[in-house]
Amino acid sequence: MKTKPAKRIALWIALIVAALFSGLPIVWLLSSSFKSNANIFAVPPKLIDESFSFTAYQEVLSDPIKLRFFVNSYAIAGIVVVITLVIALLAAYSFSRFDFPGKKIINAIIISVQAMPPITLLIPYLVLVVQLRIYDSYLALILTYIVFTLPYAILMLTGYLNTLPKELDEAVLIDGGSRFKALWKILVPSCIPSLVSVGLYTFIQCWNEYLYALTLTKSNEFRTIPIGIASLMGQYAFEWNQIMAMSILGSLPVIIIALFFQKYFISGMTAGAVKI
């Protein structure tokens, strides 16, 4: 079927207008990160001006306090990914391979946790974290993040395990192997793609989190990138170029995941909306 030229032109105009809508702000973000702070609001605005340099990036990357934010974000997100995958896999195995009283209700609770407002839990979390003496530590963020990463991970992995035939693990059991062996040796290798999707999604969730990082930590030693970026908006001076450079650096992991692991990124990001 041939499309009429007028229709094709209309489609292309719409595609380009929409691309400007979504892309231009990002182009400006990138452009500002290469300018000197004095030239940020220069008139007329130029995409690349005479102050073009990597100075802002050098300044961010040579500041130990800012580097510490990156280390913290990687450490916290990495630990949460590992814990989430292990716990979610065990739970998903149970949901996928057994029928037991209470299964439906536990499943419903796990789905509804996705609707849990983080702000509601913030006050009791702060109290618990202070009482447990883990205020301003990795542990405070790791424990609270897991609550919000687990439900999605469990639902995704259960859905995937359900697509694998039960005969796979039963073969191991008949040979006298344990269920752990069936899970570890047979099921885990065959669900690597969905483990990657869930892992990446979990990583991004932690990497982007702002509210708990703001409230449950206070020293630069334990704060993450979102807080680091926001704290650059000082009371006195805005180092716009550094803020933008740090924003780009802080978004790199997600950009890399989105561009190079697009398949996993998209299946991870959209599966939540697909029926289970």
Partner: peptide, 29 residues
């Protein structure tokens, strides 16, 4: 186009807030 349209999604709320503060600054673009 699919990647371009996905762009806003690759940045978290902090970056988006700061980016729009820059764009919408009274002296901004």
């Amino acid at each position: 186009f699919r990647v371009v349209y996905l762009l806003p999604w690759m940045f978290n709320a902090t970056v988006i807030a700061i980016l729009w503060k820059l764009l919408l600054n009274p002296n901004g673009i």
